[in-house]
Design a protein around this nucleic acid. Structure first.
Lengths: 344, 344
DNA sequence: CTGTTAGCGCCTTCAA
DNA sequence: TTGAAGGCGCTAACAG
């Protein structure tokens, strides 16, 4: 009698089979849509009982058999960022198509945490991992990409060269050049490219280097790079003021949203009017940029599409076992023009 | 001979046991730290072999036995939002403490998607679910919270009254009142509270109603509520301009970040200087608000802490099976003062 | 058209 | 201090 009371557990496949008066195999086939050789009657009965019991197959058991978890892991450098959110949405869209679950872990810009995230994904036997790296983690990632039962890995947005696994990024170099050309055409004469440390972070480094190269190759357009560190707000403002006073037609170019916000704030307090006294443009989220001041010209990447693309590559690797070359995929970014770079 | 080539599979517990020359039981005990009755020698050997094989216990198998997935699900109304990101960080912090994985699904502000998310979590046999609801989903959530093998559910930030499961929210009412009192003390005379539709969304509705009540109870402070819908930008600006012209010392109060951005943009184009001509304050992210214009006074909630708290409640339910009253926990929000409400 | 059966990798009771 | 064995829920090959 104690047997009977077994803690109101979930219905199992055996329960369903018993209730229908059929074997587990048949129920299993039903679940997988193998109706071909099944009597209409059996099918309906099974359907009824499943609903009645609110039966759901046990994933753990399925996974155990299949030797696959139907889960992928996604570690994100810093989730508190509209860009990252959209990466997630993209990855998730692709996961839903495949009926795969998504394990997400934020690395909080910490290298140590990123490693822990990845480690924990593998402990969880995910089928693959997407990495939006915090940077400077090349060696570790390369090592696991080879040792770890060759579970597939895809790098997203931030990559490591030369590539050792599939990677999806924006066309940072091309679009940076395009932006610079456009600024030149608009009549700006001095470009100040502002960025946080680019050390070990591919996206930032690529953009910075591209701008640097452009400035040194181009005799009409002059400018400089400023790498923001822990300086005092007032010191930076003084520096910017000095630049503006020497160079008329200065346009500031921010390497990301965060830097853009700071520039806007500095200029506000310096009482410089954007779009008239100075220009501003940025790698930034368009939805946000268009509401700022006169509207800030920005380079809008396509994080959603990047996420989808990365997940797609990952699933290809998971499914087809044949080895193929690593894919390096660039997603085109777009320039969204607003008044902040419209020189009057 | 074909047996031997079995696809380079992962090492299993049996492999480890065989290599050490011991039984699976012993290895299992080792994994669980049951060293008490184990010879030092055996322990070391096992340790060596595990490292050598890079062995990791198979989660699916463990879960199958334990009848628990060590996963919780978290569905988020809209992940593209700094507030949501911090909720995630909080939930995740708590998950890490417990060695539990986090399944995240974005609902993209869609009621249908939210239901799918939850459904899919249960298919995955998560141990519990945290819901940051898109709103208007009371009936569905209440139903599953009772039917679904009484797997615990916690509502986060947005809740439904009367409560039918644990809930964690900000002290929206109290802090709204505090903000209003402060605006009054600062000398503002007319308050315009701007919000998107509050229909079915507890947080927004609570704040709106609180402000409304405050305005009608208070004879010194006057004001109005504006619910933003699909109006034209120019129409809204005209309306705001009209209000400002009639009421000196008007302060705008935005119900969230998004609304705040719009207000700032409108005022910019209306050439109204924030902090002098008009006041602005908002329920918004402080990191962002302080960079806007003169710095925007904002009500900073504590999403990280809220996330932690929600996860904590969930784990309590998962672990202790005893039923207890549902907990409704309010996390205090803080007012961060900047120049936008400093009347000169 | 349907059932039997032998595991998947791990945990746990019982026995030694 | 260690091992043997049954079973968690499901799948798939094989046998009717």
């Amino acid at each position: 009698m104690e047997k009977k009371v077994r803690k109101r557990k979930k219905a199992t496949m055996a329960d369903v089979a018993a209730a229908v008066g059929v074997s587990k195999t048949t129920v299993s086939r039903y679940l997988h849509g193998d109706y071909e050789f099944m009597s209409e009657e059996t099918r309906k009965k099974i359907q009824t009982v499943i609903e009645e019991f609110n039966y759901r197959p046990n994933r753990a058991a399925q996974n155990l058999k299949a030797d696959r978890s139907n889960c992928i892991g996604f570690t994100i450098a810093d989730i508190g960022n509209p860009f990252s959110s959209l990466l997630i949405k993209g990855v998730q869209a692709e996961c839903r198509k495949r009926g795969c679950q998504l394990l997400i872990a934020d690395a909080d810009n910490s290298l140590v945490q990123e490693k822990k995230n990845i480690e924990s994904f593998f402990n969880e036997q995910v089928d693959g991992v997407i990495i939006n790296s915090v940077g400077n983690n090349r060696d570790y990632i390369q090592e696991i990409s080879q040792s770890e039962e060759n579970k597939p890995i895809v790098l997203l947005d931030r990559t490591y060269q030369p590539i050792f696994c599939d990677s999806v990024v924006s066309n940072n170099e091309a679009v940076s050049i395009e932006m610079m050309q456009e600024l030149e055409k608009q009549g700006w004469e001095y470009i100040v490219f502002l960025t946080e440390s680019v050390e070990g972070i591919s996206t930032r480094a690529t953009r910075k280097e591209t701008v640097e190269r452009f400035l040194s190759d181009n005799h009409k357009l002059d400018g400089q790079i400023i790498v923001l560190g822990g300086e005092k707000k007032l010191d930076i403002m003084a520096k910017l003021a000095q630049i503006i006073s020497v160079h008329p037609r200065t346009c500031f170019f921010a390497n990301n949203d965060e830097v853009l916000r700071r520039i806007i704030s500095y200029l506000y307090h310096m009482q410089q009017e954007i779009g008239r006294d100075v220009g501003v443009c940025a790698f930034a989220d368009e939805k946000w940029a268009k509401y700022s001041g006169p509207g800030i010209t920005c380079i809008e990447q396509h994080p959603f599409q990047m996420g989808e693309s990365a997940a797609d590559l990952l699933f290809q690797r998971i499914e087809k076992k044949e080895k193929r070359e690593f894919i390096y995929r660039e997603i085109k970014a777009d320039i969204c023009r607003y008044d902040s770079t419209h020189l009057k």
